[in-house]
């Protein structure tokens, strides 16, 4: 997991970065708001620890800019603040900060809050992924159903139009239609084998109603 530590105070920045690295996190450091925004543009970051008071761009302004692009689940942001900055904390929480920690940073408290936010982010991503799988599966079931119906009709009618003159042609059409039947079965099999089918949606398949 990659954490971006943003603080103009290089000593605090180094302290928290080193402590996090020691505990297994990958850490990127930024020393002002602009650097923070640049890094988020260029790299995949899992969470931001953002100091509120910085000279070029206040942490609260950086927060607002980041929240225009990322939800609280996509990019958790934990504000870092002095004990006396209660008003700033409230403003930041209203503006979309996930949480805050107070300086001097107690690493155990910081780790607990970081872990909570990363877990929530992971759960959100899994939910999104499950929803996508569920949609894909419902589409497969729907398409199979919609294809099977006309296919059955076509195969049934094919026998009726068969004459001595068109036997070869009708058999070719028949073979082609059975190849479609085979493909539909294989797609259905893939749908049955999806993880989501076996873990969470074991009851009935869902379908999307086609207009």
């Amino acid at each position: 997991m990659k954490i971006l530590v943003v603080d103009d105070d290089r000593i605090n920045n180094k302290m928290i970065s080193k402590k996090l690295e020691k505990r297994g996190f990958e850490v990127v450091e930024a020393f002002n708001g602009k650097q923070c925004l640049d890094i988020v543009d260029q790299q995949q970051v899992d969470l931001v620890l953002l100091d509120i008071m910085m000279p070029d761009l206040f942490g609260s302004e950086v927060l607002v800019r980041l929240r225009k692009r990322f939800t609280a689940f996509e990019l958790p942001i934990i504000m870092v603040t002095g004990k006396s900055e209660t008003e700033d904390i409230v403003e930041c929480l209203k503006a979309g900060a996930n949480d805050y920690i107070v300086k001097p940073i107690n690493i155990e408290v910081a780790l607990a809050r970081i872990s909570t936010q990363l877990s929530l982010k992971q759960m959100h991503q899994e939910n999104l992924s499950n929803a996508e799988l569920e949609t894909a599966q419902a589409m497969i079931v729907t398409y199979n159903h919609e294809i099977n119906n006309p296919l059955t009709i076509a195969l049934g009618l094919l026998g009726r139009v068969k004459t001595e003159e068109n036997t070869a042609t009708v058999e070719k059409i028949n073979d082609a239609l059975f190849r479609v039947v085979d493909i539909v079965k294989k797609i259905q099999q893939i749908s049955n084998d999806t993880k989501i089918k076996h873990t969470e949606y074991t009851s009935e398949d869902k379908m999307i109603k086609l207009k």
């Binding site: 605090n12 008071m53 002095g82 300086k103």
Partner: peptide, 15 residues
Amino acid sequence: QISAHTFKGVLSTFC
């Protein structure tokens, strides 16, 4: 304000 705040943060790190 900013420079004193930053220094305060460092001093706070060293308790």
